[in-house]
């Protein structure tokens, strides 16, 4: 078990170093950073929200969009690079299981996404903290209550986003393990992310009382097979209105995210074991 873990971490380390040097990662990171930094400048387009909410939403949007792109494309690219360059054959000829190889790939990619999330959330935190301090001073002058900003909530949101990206990476690895081409893996992976983000629509439909039937059974099955990625978007509540987060919400979301990662990795390992390289 210890040896298997050590082999996974070895693959993860190589994957991390390979991914962090990619221009694609640097490009998306710079785009995300520019988006977060420019939020303060384009807040003139804001109507009727608090300034902090506008800045926070810009950051959350950047994290979601570029994080998802990175999660889908980079995962598929790193996986297929090993197959196309035949390095996977060399690696798997050694005492390294296919499951260990996949878990290593997952951990390496997830770690890179962790760097991405920490860096962007750090920038967003600086922007929000700076503006919150200015607004608090203004509010004190006018004897108004200062705007709410919870830095610890932002940390929790970063963890949630990292978890969401973990689910995305595990999902794309599952697709890649069965796919023949990089393009197919990217397209199907992106569609799976889109479906996961919109899964709450069917979940909400199921929560409403209705007559049982074949359609409802199909909806139930589909809803329970697709991951719900919308449940990780608790940024607004965590950062700007912590009192709106009900007790027990976060443990459930964390448990659900981790369960999806484990389930997708198990399926990916199963599919990869049956695949001819």
């Amino acid at each position: 078990m210890k040896a298997a873990l050590s082999r996974c971490l070895w693959i993860a380390r190589i994957t991390f170093l390979e991914a962090i040097r990619q221009r694609f990662f640097a490009f998306l990171f710079v785009l995300g950073a520019v988006l977060v930094l420019s939020s303060s400048a384009i807040r003139v387009f804001d109507f009727g929200h608090s300034e902090l909410k506008f800045i926070a939403d810009f950051g959350f949007g950047g994290l979601f969009l570029f994080g998802s792109m990175l999660g889908v494309v980079m995962t598929a690219q790193l996986f297929f690079a090993e197959l196309d360059n035949r390095t996977a054959l060399t690696l798997l000829a050694k005492p390294l299981g296919r499951g260990e190889f996949l878990v290593g790939k997952f951990l390496g990619t997830w770690a890179v996404l962790g760097v991405f999330v920490i860096a962007l959330v750090g920038l967003l935190g600086v922007m929000l903290g700076w503006r919150a301090a200015e607004l608090a001073a203004l509010a004190a002058e006018r004897r108004l209550s200062p705007p709410e900003f919870d830095a610890a909530g932002l940390g929790l949101f970063a963890l949630l986003q990292w978890l969401r990206l973990g689910v995305v990476v595990a999902m794309v690895l599952t697709v890649a393990a069965a796919a023949r081409t990089f393009l197919f893996a990217v397209v199907v992976g992106a569609l799976a992310v889109l479906a996961g983000q919109l899964q709450w629509l069917s979940q909400d439909l199921l929560l409403k009382p209705a007559e049982a039937g074949l359609g409802r059974a199909a909806l139930w099955l589909l809803t329970h097979l697709l991951p719900n990625l919308q449940q990780f978007n608790l940024g607004d509540a965590l950062v700007l209105a912590p009192h709106q987060v009900h007790d027990g919400t976060l443990p459930w979301v964390f448990a659900s995210g981790l369960a999806y990662i484990v389930a997708f990795l198990a399926l990916a390992s199963f599919l990869f074991r049956r695949r001819e390289i």
Binding site: D204, L207, L221, V245, A263, A266, L267
Partner: peptide, 29 residues
């Protein structure tokens, strides 16, 4: 086996969503 595993995870996600949706603004579909 995988079907059962994913249905189990789906049930867990449903419970999680019941909690999480209370913190999200309602989206008018």
């Amino acid at each position: 086996g995988f079907g059962v595993l994913f249905l189990g995870v789906g049930l867990l996600a449903e419970l999680s969503w019941r909690h999480a949706r209370l913190c999200l603004p309602e989206i008018g579909r």
